[in-house]
Design a protein around this nucleic acid. Sequence first.
DNA 1: ACAACGAGTGTATACGTATACATTGGAGAG
DNA 2: CTCTCCAATGTATACGTATACACTCGTTGT
Lengths: 331, 331
Amino acid sequence: MVTSRDVARLAGVSQATVSRALSSSSKLSPATKAKVRAAMEELGYVPHAGAQAMKTQRSNTIGVVVADLTNPFYSEVLDELSRELDKAGLRVVIWNTGGSSHTDALKAIGEHAVDGVIFTTATEESLELRAAIEKAKPIVLINRSIEGLDCDRVMSDNVGGGAAVAEYLVRHRRTRVAFIGGTENASTSRERGRGFLARMRELGHPVPEHFRFRGGFDHDVSAQIMERLLARADSPQAVFCANDFMAFGALDALRRAARDQGECWVIGYDDVDMAAWSSFNLTTVRQPSRDMARTGVQLLLERLKNPGAPPRKVDFPSELIVRGSTGLAPA
Amino acid sequence: MVTSRDVARLAGVSQATVSRALSSSSKLSPATKAKVRAAMEELGYVPHAGAQAMKTQRSNTIGVVVADLTNPFYSEVLDELSRELDKAGLRVVIWNTGGSSHTDALKAIGEHAVDGVIFTTATEESLELRAAIEKAKPIVLINRSIEGLDCDRVMSDNVGGGAAVAEYLVRHRRTRVAFIGGTENASTSRERGRGFLARMRELGHPVPEHFRFRGGFDHDVSAQIMERLLARADSPQAVFCANDFMAFGALDALRRAARDQGECWVIGYDDVDMAAWSSFNLTTVRQPSRDMARTGVQLLLERLKNPGAPPRKVDFPSELIVRGSTGLAPA
DNA sequence: ACAACGAGTGTATACGTATACATTGGAGAG
DNA sequence: CTCTCCAATGTATACGTATACACTCGTTGT
């Protein structure tokens, strides 16, 4: 392995000068800098990330926790996050083990393996996470909130989005409706459900208990539920799914059952790219996932620059996008 | 920051003993080990990854290069890779900047920021990559081959898969067919196209030049091409797309054009989970992506354990999965 | 002419851990 | 009862880099 000392020897300078040639900020005569750079080139020198990390206490690496990469929403968010972090010159390490990953990601902060972590997943509120945030570790939450805890986070209006769906359905006289939610410990699903169910009740059309489901954020589970719903005599006039991924499952079940188009409306949440595909043409509540991801990166970068700053909360509005899955012509 | 020295002081032992308490292999009396563990717990000690990396020259981190996370094939592969690497106790850093990422990932090996890299992307054959492989860096290629170069890699039979599609189409009397490939510098797309086009010619039905397209592995581009094809007087009886993602685009265009089901068959390649969804019901060539990912991890782990071993090449068979997009009933 | 200064570079050390080597003490062999 | 030997632990050092401090020497101001 070639070290900065080797470079120093070849260039006829001290090891310190080599180190200085690395950081563009430090003052160094252009002549020596060129000489050192040439020596680096000749030897194929690459600085050792671990050694740098030890001295600077910076790994130039950010952790990202995702729940389920087969769900296109998470793919899109991760796609945007990784591109943005890459632009900022940071490495990206991911944890993809579902719920259990909180611990590993938090441990990585302690190990100084990552400088900060972005959580995009919405599972149970772990005590470790709470403790880490209270210790002011550099953590940003995307699409997730923790009660009574101050930290950087970017959210969209899940309650309002759910309510908007209720209003839309009632306005179009679809009042016998079902709700397919995700796991109950996911704040997003809970809030979307809360907003939707509350507004349905307010509007005089409460959703009966046997039309409320907690599937667990999965395409196939959702399809099964839809299948059972369609088999009922009083099958619903519309189904609201807590995310697009599950809505696709519902649409698939509908298609498989070969039922009349428009007999049962389907509405999703997220507006992932796929929702606009002709094959789905899904009415859904738009969540600006890529904007949210970019904002999350921004928050984290600023926190790293200024650890003492007060936590910031950024909220994005949600917007109902009407498409063919609720009978209307596509845009 | 709490260091191993702090732990040593509290436990009344030397720093070396603390270090030994970390690696379960080293011999240490159960009594002192317990004492040290208790002290670690009390102080909340976490070893510094950078320092460890510097001493051991191991980062316990693997790099993964992906091309496009919005393509579900890559999502699935990354999903499997990350789970498998996590199981092995390794961190996963990803590069997602498309073609340019080769350089960064290879640099990371030099920096000792990662112990090895798995390439899942299939873009141009970069000289840096070739050079790195020749220097015996721990690199595994998934779904990608480099001519005249020996290295660990796992592939599936792209040529054979393409040929199987040709045979299937001709057997069903669909001889006026089009091919929508990806970028020409992707070995997978090239091989699939080669296998397909060659066999069509052998069977007496060469694909005319104006029915061959290089879209670039993208849903929307593929849809546009399909649209133009359908507008022709001699529109094709079938379209073979070099991956499922593009096939979905073709199906979308077909659906948007509201053409007769079965007028134009669509065939994909990969068999991602979505291909089986009722909304697509896509006939495709199965590539065992998750098996391939697992095998890739295996190859890399063994290479790290035994750097001098001869490179291994693992090939998976490909298999035509017939579904509704070629007129047949779903399984 | 000399003093003061600052840009450019070298010297020395610290970051936190792992491990080769030295040391200790106690068990077992004769 | 002495000697040998090994297990358990301490001592010392190295990994590769960044940076505080010291130093040199040419420049500027008077």
